[in-house]
Write a protein that binds this DNA or RNA. Structure first.
Lengths: 103, 103
DNA sequence: CCTGGACACCTAGCGTCGCTATGCCTAGAG
DNA sequence: CTCTAGGCATAGCGACGCTAGGTGTCCAGG
């Protein structure tokens, strides 16, 4: 690990989506709630990130209409679930190493 | 917090230097030891980071000669100690929020 | 009617960061 | 004399987070 292995946004998105499909705006809200207001990601942060994840085959998306509003719903692929597990493990290791230095 | 508040390298450097002055190469070694090999930062990572911290007034440096080899020793300023405390607190909050999402 | 806010998506572009690659130098071992 | 380890430095690349702007719908209030 070279310390630059953070990329926390991707992990956050995977973390939300592993509980079930969601759309961009809803993900932002979910993140805000679950983190008790700490994470308030900009749309310019999560939309490119979602596109990134989709391109990487970790999520799939489909467009649907809810109350006349067009929205794109994202869901984890099997590969996405696996990637989440991997990244969470890496993250925990990273946090542990961090603790060892700054504790 | 907008999730991009990581900047873990700066915190790592402050974390090492708060235990006492050290020079670049030594910091790399200290990080490798304390993290049990997890953190193996490139020189191209830490030197610019140290310059950054110095420019920000968080560390001070002086050149000395050890066994004929020129080296630059860095030490935390009072502001650096304060900044370390702040960043560590922020980091802990960040980790907690992260846990709330990916746990 | 029409304005404003919430919902919802998208993207160009900026600043920064971590890292690679490279260069320069000394000391000591083989 | 060459190689490895110690030691510092920077140019430049790629990626990422975010700002700032754009599009459009729905609904409540004035």
């Amino acid at each position: 690990m070279t310390a630059g292995s953070k990329n926390s946004v991707d992990l956050l998105l995977l973390g939300v989506l592993r509980r079930g499909p969601a759309h961009g705006y809803g993900i932002i809200a979910a993140l805000r709630e679950r983190s008790d207001g700490e994470f308030d990601l900009a749309e310019g942060t999560i939309y490119p990130a979602l596109h990134r994840l989709e391109k990487a085959g970790l999520v799939e998306s489909s467009v649907d209409i809810a109350q006349g509003r067009r929205r794109r719903t994202y869901a984890l692929t099997p590969g996405g679930h696996k990637e989440f597990a991997t990244q969470r493990r890496d993250w925990n290791g990273f946090v542990a190493s961090m603790q060892a230095v700054i504790a």
